[in-house]
Each structure stands twice: as C-alpha cells, then as structure tokens.
C-alpha cells in the first residue's frame, strides 16, 4: 500500500491575532504547525502502512520554512517527504496549488491512496483535495471519518450534515479526512533526531522537477481567485427603540430590515 499525503503548514490559529488596522493576520512570533486534519491524514496513512506494508510519502507546497512541517511528518514515521517550493509557485490559489501537487504526484511511482485533510485552518476552502482527484482522474471521497481497506477496495464512512453514508470504492482513491478519523501519534524523539541529523531528509523540488507541464497554470498566472479585501467583521451593538402605535412600529421595523438588507424588498 503506497500512500501519498498532502499537507499544509499553517499558523497555529490558537495563537493567531489579527491586526485591527490592517485586517491581516499578525504572523510574527506565531508558531507554524501541520494543518491539524492533514496530521490525521498522515496518521491514517501510517496506520494503513503498519497493517499492509508499503510506503508513506508526504508532500507539501509552500515556502522553504514549510520544511519544518515535513520534518515533523518524517518524525511521525513517514518514509519520504517532498517540499515543493519555487518562486514560480508563489501566489498560487487552490486551483494552482492542486495542479502543482497533482503534477508532483504524477512524478512519483504508483500510489494506491492519497490522503488530504478536509480543509486547512487558515483558508478553510476544502478545495485542494477534491481538485487533485479531478486532475488525476481518480475517485474521491470527502469528509471521511472512518477507513477500512480490504483487498483492492476501500470502505469509507462519509460524514453528512444529518448522519453519514458508507461508500465503497476501488483503488486508487483520494480521501479527505476529518479530525474524528483518528488520534494522530506524537512524533517520536528518535524520529525528530533523524529528521534533523540527515538520517531522513526532506527532498526539495522546484518547478523543473515536475516534468513537461503547463507552467502558466502555476502561481499567480494560474490562479483565477482574486482576493479583493480582507477584514475583521466588526461586532457592534446598537439598540434603537421604535416608537408609535404597534402598527407604526411594525412598518418602521420592516423599513429598517429592508434598509439593512435583512429582508428583500
């Protein structure tokens, strides 16, 4: 069972504060972590490897600092870690990111499964996993909270808003997992030492490692998403007492609600 896990390094949102003037994240001094649900993906892959043998390859696209997240993945027990880092990748939205990750996965030997976390705690889009599956033309199941592999099929429990469904699919498949799927193991101290002493190594791939692909789909040029503005929602408390007869008050209230676009005209 050869498994690929895609991970993202994100700021630890428990520690993040927002600059109220600029409306941007204050990243300074904020520790970076492996996106929590991606860590569940690593754990699920490691568990399947322990059961069926094979390898676990962890992929991340990000700045050079993201190497730290991949070292942690190695310390958890991943066999191989690849950091996709290149100026050409800068400014990628989810579409470009999933294209780059897909190109990298195609450069790997065969794989049986791909795990992604459901979504990252910084962007919350939940798009990259699905887009990778589309790019690679393989089945995908999202919102997975349980995985059972038997022979060449996978049975997964997929969370729905009001329950769950159980699906069976063939391999290869891409699964995006929820935090409930498992409890990620702690990276071992020996694993941490190995990842820092060169015993295990994070491979670094630039755009030139991705073969003959359409580089215009990388980075800003491959990113149709435009961020127009980021801001912190302000929570103001205002109270206004309406006066008049009950009928007058009702009319005033309706006008007010229309004005505030709470109800349509």
């Amino acid at each position: 069972m050869d498994i690929v896990v895609c991970v993202k390094q994100v700021p630890d949102t428990n520690e993040v504060k927002i600059d109220p003037e600029e409306g941007t994240l204050i990243r300074e001094g904020v520790p970076s972590i492996i996106n929590p649900e991606d860590k569940n993906g690593i754990e699920e892959a490691l568990k399947l490897k322990e059961e069926f043998g094979g390898t676990v390859t962890v992929l991340s696209m990000g700045p050079p600092q993201a190497e730290k997240a991949l070292k942690e993945a190695l310390a958890m027990g991943a066999d191989e870690a690849i950091l996709l880092s290149d100026k050409a990748f800068a400014g990628s939205d989810t579409l470009a990111t999933s294209y780059i990750l897909s190109c990298a996965i195609e450069q790997l030997d065969d794989f049986d499964m791909i795990f992604c976390g459901r979504q990252a705690i910084d962007g919350d889009t939940a798009q990259v996993g699905s887009q990778i599956a589309e790019n690679l033309g393989i089945p995908q199941v999202t919102y997975v909270e349980d995985v059972k592999v038997e022979d060449n099929t996978v049975e997964v429990k997929r969370r729905l808003e009001d329950g769950y469904s159980v699906l069976e699919t063939s391999l290869p498949v891409l699964l995006t997992v929820l935090g409930e799927v498992n409890e990620p193991r702690y990276p071992s101290i020996k694993g941490i030492v190995d990842a820092h002493s060169g015993e295990t190594e994070v491979k670094k791939w630039g755009a030139n490692k991705l073969g003959d692909v359409d580089q215009s789909k990388f980075g800003l040029s491959g990113s149709p998403t435009q961020v127009h503005d980021t801001f912190v929602p302000t929570h103001e408390k205002k109270a206004e007492i309406l006066s008049g007869t009950p009928e007058e008050k009702a009319h005033k209230l309706i006008d007010k609600l229309k004005e505030e676009k709470v109800v349509s005209k």
Partner: peptide, 14 residues
C-alpha cells in the same frame, strides 16, 4: 536548535 525546539514542542503537547 531546531531539533531541540521540536522536541520541546512535542513533549509540551504530550
């Protein structure tokens, strides 16, 4: 070192 920092973080989480 980065290694010591990671060990500290892991043990602290634990």
């Amino acid at each position: 070192t980065d290694q010591q920092k990671m060990i500290k973080k892991v043990v602290s989480d634990f």
